[in-house]
Design a protein around this nucleic acid. Structure first.
Lengths: 247, 247
DNA sequence: CGTTGACTTGAGTCTATTCAAATCCTGTGG
DNA sequence: CCACAGGATTTGAATAGACTCAAGTCAACG
C-alpha cells in the first residue's frame, strides 16, 4: 500500500478507525487504543483467489472483512478440502488461536473481490496483556464463534441439503425490516457455498431448485432476493433448536 | 453434600484443589486462588440420567468432569435432539458463554455414573475480571474448543461412519505409550455415541462392525481395547487435515 | 463465432435411514 | 443360581438422499 503523503495516510487511518469501532472486538476500547490499531493497519481490496494466509503458518496478521467473501478451509493429504465457513463483512479472521497457539489453524482465501483491513497480530497480543477490555472482547468473540460452530454441527446433523442452503441465506441477510424484501449478494462462485454446506455442487444445484420451489426466492445473477423471509425461516428452522435470533 | 465435620470438608477441599490444578483452565493460578475455588466447590458422583443443566437456563454453576461420561446436546421443537459432544475426564462444562451471555447454550446430561466437581460461575466471573491469568486461561480454553469444533465440522463433511467412530475412539484414548495395548471405557449407552457422531444406532452398529473388520479392535462389555493404535490412526486419518496430535 | 468455465440435468451407484424382526444383555425376582 | 422381562443392540430388506460421472445448457469473453 503506497501512500502519496502523510495526509492521505492519516485519512485512511481515520477511515480504518471508523470501521474498527463498529466491531464488538473493539467495543469500549479507548480512542487512543483504536487509533493505535488503525495506524498500524492497512486497507486492501483484492481479487478472488487471493490467499490471506495458510494453515500452519505463523500468525503475523489478523484480518477484518469490510465487504466481499472469504472462504475458511482446511486441506488434507489427499486433494480434498473441508470448507469450515464462508464469511463476509464484519467478520474477524485469524484471531482464533492468537491466545495460545501462534499458528493459523485454517487457511483463508478470497472467493470474490474483497475489501479488508490487515492488522498486526503482535499489537492484539500486546493489548491482550495490557488492556483487560481487549481480553474480555476477545473472550466474547470466541464464545460467539463457539456458539456459531455448535449451530453448524447441529445443522450438519439434522438439516437436509435444502434447509442448509436456506439457513446460509438467512444467516447472511442483514437483519432488516421484516416487511421489506430482503436482497443479498452471494459469492460469485456457488460451488464454494456447496462445499461450505458439506455437499457437492450438483447436490447444491438440485437442493436449491427444490428450495426455490418451496419458498419464494429470486436469483438475479449473484443477487438473491427474498420477498418473504418469514416463510424461509419457517422452512429452514423446522429442525433448529435455536430460533434465528438466539445465540 | 453433607459434611460430617470441618475436617472432612477440608479434606474434600484439598482433593478438589488437587483436581483443579491438573486443568489448563487453572494453570499458573496462585494457590490461594485455587483454594478459593476449591472451598466453594463440591464433589459429586451421580447416576446416568442426571441433568447438570438445561439450555436457556441462567448460568449458575460450571462443572469439571473427573470420570464418567456426559452428553452435551440441544433439543428442538420436534422431538429430536442434536448431540454436540460426549465428553469425559478433564472436560470443563458450562463456561462457553460465561463471558458474554449468562445462559447455557446447550444442555448436559450424564450418560453414565459420573464423578464431577460443581463450582459457582460467579467466582469464575469474579476472577475473570480480577486475575489476568484467569482470563488468559479461559481464552486458551475457548480457542481450543473452537479448534475442536472445527475438526468436528471437517469430520462430519469428509469422513464416513466407520472413520468417525474410529476417530471418536482415538480421541478418547489417553495418549499412552504407542507400543502397549490401549484400553478405554466407553459410555454404557452406545446409541448416544451414534447420535454424537451424527448417525442412527443401526448405522453405528454396522459401521462399527466394518471398522472392527478393518482394524483390530476388541470389545469386552463397554471396554474397548486397541492393540495397534497406529493402524487405527491410519484408517481414520486418511482424510484428516490434521494429524492426531495437531491442534 | 467459438471457447471457456460455471451451472444444470440425467442415470446409475452407494451410503445411510427407516421400519421390522431377531438376538443379546442385564438386572430382578424367585 | 437360574429364569425372565425389558431394554439395547444387531440384522435384514426396502427406501431415500446424496454422490459420481457424463453430457448438456448457458452466459461471458475474446
Amino acid at each position: 500500500m503506497i501512500m502519496s503523503n502523510k495526509a492521505a495516510s492519516s485519512r485512511t487511518s481515520v477511515h480504518i478507525a471508523h470501521q474498527l469501532k463498529k466491531l464488538s472486538l473493539f467495543s469500549e476500547l479507548s480512542d487512543s487504543t483504536i487509533s493505535h490499531f488503525a495506524e498500524k493497519a492497512s486497507l486492501y481490496q483484492r481479487d478472488k483467489g487471493t490467499l490471506l494466509f495458510l494453515q500452519e503458518e505463523e500468525i503475523q496478521w489478523f484480518y477484518v472483512i469490510i465487504g466481499g467473501w472469504v472462504k475458511i478451509f482446511r486441506e488434507n493429504s489427499d486433494s480434498s478440502e473441508a470448507v469450515l465457513d464462508i464469511v463476509s463483512h464484519g467478520f474477524v479472521l485469524g484471531v482464533d488461536s492468537i491466545a495460545d497457539y501462534d499458528f493459523y489453524t485454517y487457511s483463508a482465501e478470497l472467493i470474490d473481490e474483497t475489501h479488508y483491513i490487515k492488522l498486526p497480530a503482535s499489537l492484539l497480543k500486546y493489548y491482550l496483556e495490557k488492556d483487560h477490555l481487549m481480553a474480555r472482547n476477545l473472550l466474547a468473540y470466541l464464545s460467539q464463534q463457539n456458539r456459531r460452530k455448535n449451530r453448524e454441527i447441529e445443522h450438519l446433523n439434522l438439516q437436509n441439503a435444502s434447509q442448509r442452503i436456506g439457513c446460509f441465506l438467512l444467516r447472511h441477510c442483514s437483519s432488516s425490516n421484516k416487511d421489506t424484501i430482503t436482497t443479498l449478494r452471494l459469492p460469485y462462485d456457488k460451488s464454494s457455498i456447496a462445499a461450505r454446506l458439506g455437499m457437492q455442487p450438483e447436490t447444491f444445484s438440485r437442493a436449491f431448485a427444490r428450495l426455490k420451489q418451496q419458498v419464494d426466492i429470486n436469483m438475479n445473477g449473484s443477487i438473491a432476493s427474498i420477498p418473504d423471509k418469514a416463510a424461509l425461516e419457517n422452512y429452514v428452522c423446522a429442525s433448529c433448536s435455536s430460533g434465528l435470533n438466539r445465540q
